[in-house]
Amino acid sequence: GTVHVGDKTYHFPTPDAAKKFAQEIAKKLNLQVTVKNGTWQVH
C-alpha cells in the first residue's frame, strides 16, 4: 500500500499496514484521510 502525507510518500508491504499508518498519522496530526485506488492520502 502507498500513503501520501503532504509531499512525502510511504510504501507498505500490505494494504492493511498502509491503512493503519494513514489512520494513525491522521489522528495524530488531526487531518483527514481519503483513499483512492488503494492509495491513501492524509491531508
Rank of each mutant, 00 (worst) to 15 (best):
G1R: 12
G1V: 08
G1F: 15
G1K: 11
G1W: 14
G1C: 14
G1Y: 15
G1M: 10
G1A: 11
T2V: 12
T2G: 03
T2W: 12
T2I: 13
T2Q: 07
V3D: 00
V3T: 02
V3M: 02
V3H: 01
V3E: 01
H4Y: 13
H4W: 11
H4P: 00
H4V: 15
H4D: 05
H4Q: 14
V5P: 01
V5Y: 10
V5A: 04
V5D: 03
V5H: 05
G6R: 06
G6I: 08
G6N: 08
G6K: 06
G6V: 05
D7L: 13
D7H: 14
D7V: 11
D7F: 13
D7E: 11
D7T: 14
D7G: 14
K8C: 14
K8E: 07
K8V: 09
K8P: 00
K8S: 06
K8G: 04
K8M: 10
K8T: 08
K8Q: 10
T9Q: 07
T9R: 06
T9Y: 10
T9V: 14
T9D: 05
T9M: 09
Y10A: 01
Y10R: 01
Y10S: 00
Y10T: 01
Y10I: 04
H11Y: 13
H11K: 09
H11I: 09
H11V: 09
H11Q: 07
H11R: 09
H11D: 05
H11L: 09
H11S: 08
F12S: 00
F12K: 01
F12L: 04
F12M: 02
F12Y: 02
F12V: 01
P13D: 13
P13R: 13
P13H: 09
P13S: 13
P13V: 08
P13A: 13
P13G: 09
P13E: 12
P13Q: 11
P13Y: 07
T14Q: 04
T14L: 04
T14V: 04
T14I: 03
T14K: 04
T14P: 01
P15W: 15
P15L: 13
P15T: 11
D16Y: 10
D16L: 11
D16I: 09
D16A: 13
D16G: 11
D16S: 11
D16R: 09
A17G: 07
A17V: 05
A17L: 13
A17P: 01
A17H: 07
A18C: 03
A18K: 00
A18T: 01
A18Y: 01
A18S: 02
A18L: 02
A18F: 03
K19R: 14
K19S: 11
K19T: 05
K19A: 14
K19F: 12
K19N: 07
K20E: 11
K20M: 11
K20V: 10
K20D: 08
K20G: 05
K20T: 10
K20A: 13
K20H: 11
F21E: 00
F21P: 00
F21Y: 07
F21Q: 00
F21M: 03
F21G: 00
F21R: 01
A22C: 03
A22S: 03
A22D: 00
A22T: 02
A22Q: 00
A22N: 00
Q23H: 15
Q23Y: 15
Q23M: 15
Q23W: 15
Q23D: 08
E24K: 13
E24V: 10
E24R: 14
E24W: 15
E24I: 11
I25G: 00
I25P: 00
I25K: 03
I25N: 02
A26H: 02
A26L: 03
A26F: 03
A26D: 01
A26R: 03
K27P: 01
K27W: 08
K27A: 12
K27F: 11
K27V: 08
K27D: 08
K28L: 12
K28N: 06
K28Y: 08
K28A: 11
K28R: 14
K28Q: 10
K28S: 08
K28G: 05
K28W: 07
K28P: 03
L29C: 06
L29H: 11
L29M: 08
L29R: 04
N30P: 01
N30E: 05
N30S: 08
N30F: 05
N30Y: 04
N30H: 09
L31V: 12
L31I: 05
L31G: 12
L31E: 03
L31A: 15
Q32E: 10
Q32H: 12
Q32V: 14
Q32M: 12
Q32I: 14
Q32N: 09
Q32P: 09
Q32G: 06
Q32L: 11
V33Y: 06
V33K: 02
V33M: 07
V33P: 04
T34Y: 10
T34Q: 06
T34S: 12
T34G: 04
T34R: 06
V35Y: 15
V35A: 08
V35E: 15
V35D: 07
V35K: 07
V35L: 15
V35T: 07
K36E: 13
K36L: 14
K36G: 06
K36M: 14
K36F: 13
K36Y: 12
N37H: 05
N37R: 04
N37P: 03
N37D: 15
N37T: 04
N37L: 05
N37K: 05
N37Y: 04
N37E: 09
N37S: 05
N37G: 09
G38Y: 08
G38W: 05
G38E: 06
G38N: 14
G38M: 05
G38R: 05
G38D: 09
T39E: 15
T39V: 15
T39F: 10
T39P: 02
T39N: 11
T39I: 15
W40A: 03
W40L: 06
W40K: 01
Q41W: 15
Q41N: 11
Q41V: 15
Q41T: 15
Q41K: 07
Q41C: 14
Q41I: 15
Q41D: 08
V42T: 04
V42F: 05
V42C: 03
V42S: 03
H43Q: 12
H43A: 11
H43C: 11
H43I: 13
H43V: 13
